[in-house]
Amino acid sequence: MAILRLGQTSLVFSIIAVIGGSIVKPYAKVGGWIMIGSGIAIFITSCFYNALGIFPATVLIAAGLTSISRKTHASHSGDVSS
């Protein structure tokens, strides 16, 4: 029964990670932190019942770190003053 709950928890955090990945374009830092949090949660829950979640969790953490460290340029701010 506990394994089923851990699997459900991983599924919920995966859905949250997809939401975080979809908001990276307008809100890079928020989406990055959501992906990092989801990656850590998936890593913790997958360590208890199988190792299949370790690779996706690592990729989520890397993607979150990349989006947090992304530089935003003034040309992409949407200001049209030419």
Rank of each mutant, 00 (worst) to 15 (best):
G31W: 09
A63K: 09
T66Y: 06
L60N: 02
S14N: 15
G32E: 01
S14V: 07
K29S: 14
V80M: 14
T58C: 14
G32K: 03
A2R: 15
A2F: 13
K25A: 13
G20C: 10
S22D: 02
S10A: 13
A51R: 09
S82N: 14
G53K: 00
A41G: 04
A63R: 15
H76N: 10
A62P: 01
S69E: 08
G21S: 06
T66R: 10
S75M: 12
C47E: 04
A51K: 05
N50Q: 08
G21H: 05
K29G: 02
G21I: 05
V30M: 11
V24T: 09
G64Q: 04
I16Y: 07
A51W: 12
A57M: 02
L52E: 04
A41C: 12
I42D: 03
H73I: 04
H76V: 08
L60E: 01
G20F: 08
S77L: 13
I44Y: 08
I54L: 08
L52A: 09
T72P: 00
L6W: 08
H73F: 14
A74N: 15
V12C: 06
I23G: 01
S46R: 06
P56Y: 10
Q8C: 12
P56H: 13
G78V: 05
Y49I: 13
G39H: 09
L4T: 04
L65V: 11
K25Q: 09
T45Q: 15
I15Q: 03
R70M: 06
A57Q: 06
L4V: 11
A74S: 15
S67L: 06
I19N: 00
V24H: 01
K71D: 05
F48T: 05
V18Y: 14
M35Q: 10
T9Q: 05
C47I: 10
I36K: 05
V80H: 08
S67G: 11
S14L: 12
Y49G: 00
G37E: 03
G31T: 07
G21T: 03
S22A: 12
D79R: 15
I3S: 06
A41K: 02
I19K: 00
I34H: 01
S67W: 14
P56M: 09
Y49S: 03
P56W: 05
F43Y: 10
A41Q: 10
A2T: 07
I54Q: 11
A57G: 07
I61S: 01
T9S: 05
A28C: 09
L52W: 15
H76Y: 11
F13G: 03
K25I: 14
G32D: 01
I68F: 03
M1T: 11
I23P: 01
G39W: 03
S69Q: 10
A62V: 08
R5W: 11
L60F: 13
Y49R: 08
Y49P: 00
